[in-house]
Design a protein around this nucleic acid. Sequence first.
DNA 1: GCCAACGTTGGC
DNA 2: GCCAACGTTGGC
Length: 155
Amino acid sequence: MTDTGTRYWLLKTEPEVFSLDDLQRRGVEPWEGVRNYEARNHLRAMSPGDIALIYHSSCQPAGIVGLGTIAGAHRPDPAQFDPQSPYFDPKSSETNIRWSLVDVAYQSHWPRMVTLEQIRQTPDLAQMALVCRPRLSVMPISPEEFELLRGMAHA
DNA sequence: GCCAACGTTGGC
DNA sequence: GCCAACGTTGGC
């Protein structure tokens, strides 16, 4: 019997490029441009209905601002085949699809942002890849971490 | 298959 | 905008 429980993921985005407000306006957005194999493997492990914690990076303050849901199975990222795209990858082909994306649907803004600083100051969150692996842009979140973060957002 | 050079990420 | 950390590339 495979695990069918809801899983939790963290997705980073630079709000100057694409923010949670943008996701709310769009409704659903293809999460394109992930070009790191570990992050890609996490995308490929996602299932429809999984929860995405949306994290704003490269801004002041950085932190988790709300939630999305994974809206469909992963699929090839079309940008890898588009020479006009900044995410073009000449080594990708139809028979060697290097990069994947998932579609992310807007769910909610949290009542208050949970900042990176708060996360760092919380001992039970010190194992998060966000802290230990600062350059990873897609990462799994445990149910325990999710509940703790959700509580901080609603405190 | 090692590893130096290079490019990118992301906090500050 | 700086720069440390670190993932990726490519010459050997």
